[in-house]
């Protein structure tokens, strides 16, 4: 699914990722943990193609193609999805119309017919209900006036609609109370399948109780310094990042 080799990336000339390797196979859930400033969000941004992140060395292979050669929108249409750490508000653009445009952009890309308005409506209503999102929010502008928890659930709604094959969750748990966390986790888990993969970036082990990873990696100073199974997350919770890898 995703194979990152010796990835070096910098922001404003400052080197952040310094030789990162990661291989995610279809159906796997990988968690990346690490202290502030380790490069977690940089990794998410490089993968999604955000401006201002310069890859200076290494390669990223996504489903057999070079990810770095693809535009942001093409990455998305090929099945890559980033759930934002800070979802953006877009006044005047309704949730519904934007998601419909996104769905159809992806379908066209795959040479599928565009989705019928009624089918779309019933699908989005079902998904919103699953995430306990008020139906009225579908008609509101994207994230405008949403609470922190609602914004995060709205990200997961987009994920459920677009059915990406690789989802990157960038600190999706930040700002969520325990109820909202469970709803979000259920949403993510409902998408689990042996042809889909997940990269869960988090600061805390808490989320991993609900989205159980196959592998846990510790990212520090731009490199993965330790990898293990889900037990590693528990260890980290107890002993902290200090001392890991030494």
């Amino acid at each position: 699914m995703l194979n990152i080799e010796n990835l070096h990336a910098s922001v404003d000339g400052k080197s952040i990722l310094k030789g990162l390797n990661l291989n995610i196979k279809p159906g796997e859930i990988h968690a990346i943990m690490g202290p502030n400033g380790a490069g977690k969000s940089t990794l998410a941004n490089v993968l999604s193609g955000r401006d201002g992140y310069e890859v200076t060395q290494g390669s990223i292979n996504f489903k057999g193609q070079s990810l770095l050669d693809m535009n942001i929108d093409i990455r998305a249409r090929e099945g890559l999805f980033l759930a934002f750490q800070y979802p953006v508000e877009i006044p005047g653009v309704s949730n519904m119309s934007f998601l419909k445009a996104a769905m159809n952009a992806k379908r066209r890309h795959r040479e599928q017919t565009e989705m019928d308005a009624m089918d779309f409506l019933s699908l989005i209503k079902t998904k919103a209900k699953q995430l306990q999102l008020n139906e009225e929010m579908l008609y509101r502008a994207v994230n405008e006036g949403f609470s922190g928890g609602e914004k995060k659930r709205n990200e997961v709604l987009q994920m459920l609609m677009l059915e990406p094959c690789l989802s990157i969750l960038d600190e999706t748990d930040s700002g969520l109370d325990i109820d909202a966390l469970q709803i979000v986790a259920q949403g993510v888990n409902s998408l689990r399948a042996n042809n889909r993969s997940f990269l869960v970036i988090t600061h805390y082990q808490r989320l991993l109780n609900y989205i159980v990873p196959d592998y846990v990696h510790v990212l520090a100073d731009g490199k993965i310094i330790k990898s293990g199974n889900k037990e590693l997350a528990l260890e980290l919770e107890e002993s902290g990042y200090v001392g890991v890898g030494s």
Binding site: I72, A76, V142
Partner: peptide, 18 residues
């Protein structure tokens, strides 16, 4: 808004469409 443009593209919309 650059952030909004990036967000829309990251959902599959071409830059011109966004």
């Amino acid at each position: 808004d650059e952030e909004a443009l990036f967000f829309l593209q990251s959902r599959g919309l071409a830059l011109s469409k966004a």
